[in-house]
């Protein structure tokens, strides 16, 4: 077992030991379930057998939940000093970051796995575009990866979990909505740049069932960018 999986395994175990995992999963299912099936423009209002309502609400739910998952990752290690223990073992900074990234992604993946009954139910109700739903889930995972890396970065620059949480939300909100808003109120090159940076545009096109390499490259590079910053951050100890 490589060090990355050793770290990821420990982190996932610690989420379950501390009940965070159960709370996150139950709350995620409660939120998305309520808005998908019971309230607002839910599936029955749309009169269409698709999961657009779910993908709409899951985007916002994960937006708030992911910083809650990532905030403790490095901030707590720095506060309790266990980061010193980790870094003096035979592992590199990159392996630590990747291990923690994978553990968070596994948590999100698990929460999404529990929404599979939604998919099964909807597919019983009518004719479902399976491709769109699969690419929707794929889009959710890509978006989560990007927000997890932002969360890890925020957690790497402070040893206070609350600061990490708020900072992650602050950075994420730009990608979630602000770049989009700013882009549509400006013009020319800046408008184009801001809309390209906006995460929601790329997410929406994937959820519509269009798997464009441009969108995938966007998510992957966004994720790598913040992970790299997080890695540089914990490398920097004078």
């Amino acid at each position: 077992m490589g060090p990355i999986s050793v770290i990821a395994k420990r982190e996932v175990g610690s989420y379950f030991d501390s009940l965070i995992a159960y709370i996150i999963i139950v709350a995620f299912l409660g939120f998305t379930g309520f808005f998908t099936w019971l309230y607002g423009s839910d599936i029955f209002m749309r009169k269409q057998a698709d999961l657009a309502a779910f993908f709409g609400v899951a985007r916002w739910t994960l937006f708030f939940f992911i910083p809650a998952i990532t905030m403790r990752q490095l901030a707590e290690e720095k506060k309790t000093g266990t980061i010193e223990l980790l870094l003096t073992k035979a592992v590199s900074e990159r392996q630590i970051i990747l291990g923690k990234f994978l553990s968070c992604l596994a948590m999100v993946g698990l929460a999404l796995l529990f929404t599979l009954p939604y998919y099964i139910t909807v597919s019983q109700l009518g004719d479902v575009d399976h491709g769109a739903i699969i690419s929707g889930y794929f889009g959710l995972l890509l978006m989560s990866a990007a927000y997890i890396s932002i969360g890890l970065f925020a957690s790497s620059i402070t040893n206070n979990q609350i600061v990490a949480f708020l900072l992650a939300l602050f950075i994420s909100i730009f990608f979630q909505i602000l770049f989009d808003v700013m882009g549509s109120s400006s013009s020319g090159f800046i408008a184009e740049l801001l809309t390209t940076l906006s995460l929601s545009r790329h997410y929406d096109s994937i959820v519509r069932g269009v798997l464009d390499s441009k969108d995938i490259i966007y998510f992957v590079s966004l994720t790598l960018f913040w992970l790299l910053l997080a890695e540089l951050n914990i490398k920097q100890r004078k």
């Binding site: 060090p3 050793v6 610690s14 309790t80 000093g81 010193e84 980790l86 003096t88 073992k89 592992v91």
Partner: peptide, 29 residues
């Protein structure tokens, strides 16, 4: 780092882990 065993000053530990799991984690790392 593989050849060095280190006990830091304030002995930071993962308090939420059982002793045996913790030792296994360190050995695997």
């Amino acid at each position: 780092k593989r050849h060095i065993g280190y006990l830091p000053e304030h002995n930071p530990l993962y308090l939420d882990m059982p002793v045996l799991d913790y030792l296994e984690f360190c050995a695997a790392l």
